[in-house]
């Protein structure tokens, strides 16, 4: 049965929560036939154009301090983005694929945030390769929870995070992986 969905946004748009060190920006992003992962990891663009932006300070992430129809975000200042699962993966356009059979529990820190979640790998997790030599700047975390270091009562979760590995200050992983379902 076909069902009407209200507030899903225009076709081709995804709703994303972006976090910088100081701000939370909730916005729509025009993904067309790509995913948010593709756009964040597109090295040809240093900025990302977003629409219907609502801005909050990290100290008061529920309070909206500004809203603007259109904005540009500098990708290198985005600490992480909360995205739906479908938007967290690369689309079929890219040569390599996301996915893995092993799940490592990870804990990582970024300026102002600490994040827990799981990383999918096909083999043993190589921290150096994951953090330093990874092709993508934004890496996928599933079952994620972020906490603001200075305001630990403020937590954020979602289906998946895309974390800017270039801003990661510490990356810790569990010794033993779990088997992915």
């Amino acid at each position: 049965m076909k069902r009407t969905i209200v507030g899903a946004g225009p076709r081709g748009y995804a709703t994303v929560d972006f976090f910088t060190g100081d701000y939370r920006v909730s916005a729509q992003i025009n993904v067309r036939n790509r995913t948010v992962n593709d756009i964040l990891n597109d090295k040809r663009l240093s900025y990302i154009e977003v629409f219907d932006t609502y801005i909050s300070r990290i100290s008061q992430p529920g309070y909206i301090v500004g809203s603007h129809h259109v904005a540009l975000l500098r990708k290198d200042t985005i600490s992480f983005a909360i995205v739906p699962t479908g938007e967290s993966r690369p689309s079929g356009q890219r040569a390599y694929r996301y996915g893995g059979k092993l799940l490592y529990q990870v804990f990582l820190t970024l300026p102002a945030f600490e994040i827990q979640g799981k990383v999918h790998t096909t083999g043993k997790l190589d921290l150096y390769a994951f953090l330093a030599t990874n092709v993508d700047d934004f890496v996928i975390l599933t079952e994620p929870v972020a906490r603001v270091a200075n305001f630990p009562d403020n937590t954020f979760s979602g289906e998946a995070f895309l974390v800017n590995r270039l801003l990661v200050t510490m990356f810790c992983a569990s010794e033993q992986p779990e088997r992915a379902a």
Partner: peptide, 10 residues
């Protein structure tokens, strides 16, 4: 469209 616990609280 904001789905965090803090949004509900606010």
């Amino acid at each position: 469209a904001r789905a965090q616990a803090v949004d509900r609280k606010v």
